[in-house]
Amino acid sequence: MSEHNQQAVTRYRNNFLQEVEERVEDGEWVKMCMQCGVCAGSCPLGNAWQHTPQKLFMMIRAGKREEVLTSDSMWMCTSCYNCIVRCPRKLPITHIMHGLANYAHRLNLVPKGQPTREVARLFWNSLAKTGRVNELKFSLALYFKDGFVQGIRNALAMQGVGFGLMKARRLNPMELFGGHKCKDPGSLHKMIAKAREIEDRKKGFAS
């Protein structure tokens, strides 16, 4: 259990709802759910989830901290916004799903190898470094996320596409070396660091 997680558990004890309210993006909305189940019925991927938004909200109220934060479900949200449009109580459900996912990520409680989280992490790392997403590096990192052999297999499977893109001049192999970046990555890093500091303070991650 991470240090932050330990700290949150101590602080909120059984009151997970309060924890969500204070630390999860848009978490203060959870208490306004009236359990009508329209979100669960509206979600195009609802069947694929272990827990629908309705259930996640109920679990939060019931204090099922571990189950909620280690759930795979909020990671499955595709941001189609059907639930937000339909929620009679106007809960920003999509945002709450992302908020929960983000909180679980920060506490490092996400199931191992959760693919959405991996993609997001690679995307963010690429972006935060240079201010630009390096498509070539990002793709290759994705190919190799499950190991070297699997990476080679993935790359071979996709080589036709890669050559096609190169021919059409949509992919520059030279990007592999450095690649293009924004004008002043140093300032970007400072901005991100500041934003993170503010968020950490707000969400109780400041040590």
Binding site: L17, M32, M34, M58, R61, A62, R89
Partner: peptide
């Protein structure tokens, strides 16, 4: 089943805002 006829829905929301927990 929570049934609040009339303008009771507003009252219900107000209670949720105050942190009253509703468990089905």
């Amino acid at each position: 089943d929570l049934r609040l006829p009339g303008m009771g829905e507003d009252f219900y929301r107000s209670a949720q805002r105050k942190g009253v927990t509703f468990t089905k």
